[in-house]
Design a protein around this nucleic acid. Structure first.
Length: 592
RNA sequence: GGGCCGGCAGCUCAGUCUGGACAGAGCGCGGGCCUUCGGAGCCCGUGGUCCCGGGUUCAAAUCCCGGCCGGCCCA
C-alpha cells in the first residue's frame, strides 16, 4: 500500500482540525445561525499549551452565558480529545481553551512533510499558474542605485521569489525611465562636456551620477538653461515619433547615458542577487501615449486648455488635481506614457504589481482613474508603496549628490564581515579568495535582511551601525544555518529510521513548531505583499535553532535513538532554513 | 489648506487588517555560560502614561471621532 502524501502545510491542517471540532461542538450545544469564527493563537502566553483559542469569549455574549461556562460546554461537546494531534484541551483564564499538542504525533507529521517536499516544502499553490507582471526598482538612469532604490529592489525581488515559489507565472520587469527631464539634463551635460568616456575602472552610473549632480547645479544657477534642456526633451520625443534626423546627436546622447547608467545598475543588482526578466523602455510608449491622448479627447474625458495643454479632469474619481497629459508644446508626460505601459502590461498578464516609493501615491491614483476611463480594470493593478530611507543629514537626492549607494553599503558590510572573521578566527585554513567570497555573501545577506526586515510603510532612518548589526540581522540567520550544517558534517551519517517521539522536549518541539509555520508565513508574505513577514519568520526560526543548539545536545545525545531523532531534526531544519533563505535571497553558507 | 503614511522600553522594531490572558523581540545596561556539536551564540535580570483626549465594548496598542508631532504628495 502506497503511503499517503503528508500535508503541504501541517500547521494549517492542525488549525483546521481544531476549528472543525470546535465548530461542531458549538453547533450541537448552541443554537447559532452561522458557523462561528474560531481564531487560533499559535503563541499562548501560558505554560504547557501550544495553541489556544478565545472563541468562547466572543461566543459568550451571543449565547448569554459566562465565558468559562461556554468554554467548558464546548470542551464537553467536542471530540478534541480524540483528535490525534491533540494531547489535552482545558479551560483557563477568563475562558480560553488552551490546547497542548500531542508532540510526538505533531513532530512526526511535520518532519514527514519537510522531508517529503524538501526544497518544495512551503510552496503552496496560491497562484495556480496565473501570469503576473511584477515591476520593481525602475530607477532613473541618471546616477547610481542608492539604498532607497535598494528598498524597492529588495521588496520586489523577495516578492518575486515568493510568487514564483507559490506558482505564479511571474515576469519581473524593470521600467527604464529613459526620457524624463533628468535624463535630458544629463544628456545636455554629456554633450556639453564633449561626450566623455567613462574612465577606466569607474562604475559608469557613479561617473554619470556626478555629471548629473553638476548639471543640476549649473541649471539651478542659470535658469535660462532650463529652456535648453526642455528643447532637448522635445527634440528627443520628436525624434522617437518621426525619426527626425536633425535630432540624431541628441538622441544618441540620451541613449548613451541611459545605457551606461543602466549597465551600472545591473552590475549592482547582480551583486545583490536581484534579477529582472525584462527591461522595458519608457520611450517605447511614446506613440501609444499619443494615441491614448487622442482617444481620451475623442471620448470627451480630456480637453485642451487655453495654453494648448491637454488635461484630464478626474474629479469624478475624487481627485481634485487634474492630470496633464500633454504639455502646451505637445510633448507627453511621464504619467501619460505610464498609462500606455500599464495598458500593455494588463494585456499580457492576469494582474500587475508595481513597487513604488510613497511619493507616487497621487500619480497612481491618477493612473488608475485613467485606466478606468479607458475600460481597463484598475483593480488588476496592485501597487506596493514603501516609505523613504532618510539619512541623518536629510532625504537622499541624486540631484544634490546626497546618497549612500548600494555598493558602498555592501562594501562596508563586507569589510565588517572580514573583520569579524579575523576576530573570531574562523576559516583561517582557507585562502584569501575563499574568505573574500564568504565575506561577500555575509554582506549580501546583511544588506538584504537589513532592508527586508522593516515593513514597507515604515520610514527608515539610516544608521550604519544599526543597519549592519550582525546580531539581529542576516548573519544571525546564516550562522544558525552554518551551525546546523556543521553538526551534519561531523555526524556524517544518513539516518533512515527514527522516532519523532524523542523530540518532545521544549526546545526541540519549539523548533518543530516553528518549521511547521513556514508554509503559512510564505502565504502571508505573498497575500499581504509584505516581505518583512518572511524576514521576521526567518529570524524566529533561527532563534529557535540557536536555543536548541545551545540547550540540546545532538551528537552527544544521551541515547542512540535520541541522537538519531535529533540529527533528523537538524537536517529538517536545514531544509526549511534553506528554503526561507532562498526566498529572502540571503546566501546559505556552510561556513562563515 | 487638502490627502496618504508613521508615532509602542533610553535606541531600532514586531504586534493593529481579523479587539481578548501579565504588550513581545533585538540593541543598551547588570549578572552568568567554552574539559560536550562553531561564543556572529545561549540563559537570567533591568527597562513601557502602547503620542494626547474622547467614544464604542464584558474587553482597546488594535475599532470610531477630534487633536499633536514627524515624513511624503498636492496647491
Amino acid at each position: 500500500m502506497a503511503e499517503e502524501a503528508p500535508p503541504h502545510d501541517p500547521y494549517s491542517l492542525l488549525v483546521r482540525t481544531i476549528r472543525t471540532s470546535i465548530r461542531d461542538a458549538v453547533s450541537s450545544a448552541y443554537d447559532v445561525d452561522e458557523p462561528v469564527e474560531v481564531p487560533v493563537d499559535p503563541e499562548p502566553p501560558v505554560e504547557d499549551a501550544d495553541v489556544a483559542t478565545p472563541v468562547a469569549l466572543s461566543l459568550a455574549k451571543e449565547v448569554g452565558e459566562e465565558p468559562r461556562r461556554v468554554a467548558e460546554t464546548i470542551l464537553e461537546e467536542s471530540d478534541l480529545d480524540e483528535v490525534v494531534l491533540v494531547d489535552e484541551a482545558r479551560v483557563e483564564g477568563p475562558g480560553y481553551i488552551n490546547i497542548r499538542l500531542n508532540r510526538p504525533q505533531y513532530a512526526a507529521l511535520v518532519l514527514r512533510s519537510v522531508f517529503y517536499y524538501g526544497e518544495e516544502y512551503g510552496s503552496l499553490d496560491l497562484g495556480m499558474g496565473r501570469p503576473a507582471i511584477l515591476e520593481h526598482t525602475s530607477a532613473n538612469p541618471n546616477g547610481p542605485l542608492h539604498i532607497g532604490h535598494g528598498r524597492n529592489a529588495i521588496i520586489g525581488d523577495i516578492l518575486a521569489r515568493c510568487m514564483v515559489f507559490t506558482n505564479y507565472d511571474v515576469e519581473v520587469q524593470y521600467y527604464v525611465n529613459d526620457m524624463g527631464k533628468q535624463i535630458a539634463m544629463l544628456a545636455w551635460k554629456y554633450i556639453k562636456e564633449g561626450r566623455p568616456e567613462v574612465p577606466e575602472g569607474r562604475k559608469p552610473d557613479e561617473f554619470f551620477g556626478e555629471l548629473y549632480a553638476e548639471a543640476a547645479r549649473e541649471i539651478e544657477e542659470d535658469p535660462e538653461l532650463e529652456e535648453v534642456v526642455e528643447r532637448f526633451l522635445r527634440s528627443y520625443e520628436r525624434y522617437l515619433l518621426e525619426e527626425e534626423s536633425r535630432a540624431e546627436r541628441i538622441a544618441e546622447a540620451f541613449q548613451t547615458v541611459v545605457e551606461e547608467c543602466l549597465r551600472g545598475h545591473i552590475e549592482t543588482l547582480e551583486r545583490l542577487r536581484v534579477a529582472h526578466d525584462r527591461f522595458v523602455y519608457e520611450s517605447e510608449f511614446v506613440e501609444d501615449a499619443v494615441e491614448i491622448v487622442e482617444k481620451l479627447v475623442e471620448m470627451g474625458a480630456a480637453e485642451e486648455r487655453d495654453d494648448g495643454a491637454v488635461v484630464l479632469d478626474l474629479e469624478d474619481y475624487g481627485i481634485d488635481k487634474e492630470l496633464v497629459l500633454t504639455r502646451s508644446d505637445g510633448t507627453t508626460l511621464y504619467t501619460t506614457r505610464d498609462i500606455a505601459y500599464h495598458l500593455w502590461k494588463l494585456g499580457r498578464a492576469a494582474f500587475v504589481i508595481d513597487v513604488l516609493g510613497a511619493d507616487h501615491k497621487l500619480a497612481v491614483q491618477q493612473l488608475k482613474a485613467a485606466l478606468d476611463l479607458l475600460d481597463a480594470d484598475p483593480d488588476r493593478v496592485d501597487v506596493i508603496f514603501y516609505e523613504f530611507i532618510h539619512l541623518p543629514e536629510g532625504s537622499m537626492s541624486t540631484r544634490k549628490g546626497r546618497y549612500v549607494t548600494l555598493d558602498e553599503f555592501l562594501d562596508e558590510a563586507k569589510r565588517r564581515a572580514l573583520e569579524k572573521m579575523r576576530e573570531a578566527g574562523v576559516a583561517e585554513d582557507l585562502d584569501e579568495e575563499e574568505r573574500e567570497e564568504i565575506a561577500e555573501n555575509v554582506a549580501i545577506g546583511a544588506v538584504r535582511f537589513a532592508i527586508a526586515r522593516v515593513s514597507p510603510n515604515k520610514p527608515i532612518e539610516f544608521d550604519w551601525d544599526e543597519a549592519l548589526d550582525f546580531r539581529r540581522g542576516g548573519p544571525f540567520i546564516q550562522y544558525a544555518y552554518a551551525r546546523a550544517r556543521s553538526i551534519l558534517r561531523r555526524a556524517d551519517e544518513d539516518v533512515q529510521r527514527f522516532d519523532a517521539a524523542h523530540l518532545d522536549d521544549d526546545h526541540s518541539f519549539e523548533l518543530v513548531f516553528r518549521m511547521s509555520m513556514f508554509p503559512r508565513q510564505v502565504a502571508q508574505c505573498v497575500r499581504k505583499r509584505r516581505p518583512d513577514i518572511l524576514a521576521e519568520y526567518a529570524y524566529e526560526l533561527a532563534r529557535a535553532f540557536h536555543t536548541f543548539y545551545e540547550e540540546v545536545p545532538v551528537l552527544h545525545a544521551e541515547d542512540e535513538e535520541v541522537r538519531k531523532a535529533r540529527l533528523k531534526l537538524v537536517e529538517a531544519f536545514t531544509i526549511v532554513m534553506e528554503n526561507v533563505m532562498n526566498l529572502l535571497g540571503v546566501p546559505a553558507l556552510e561556513r562563515m
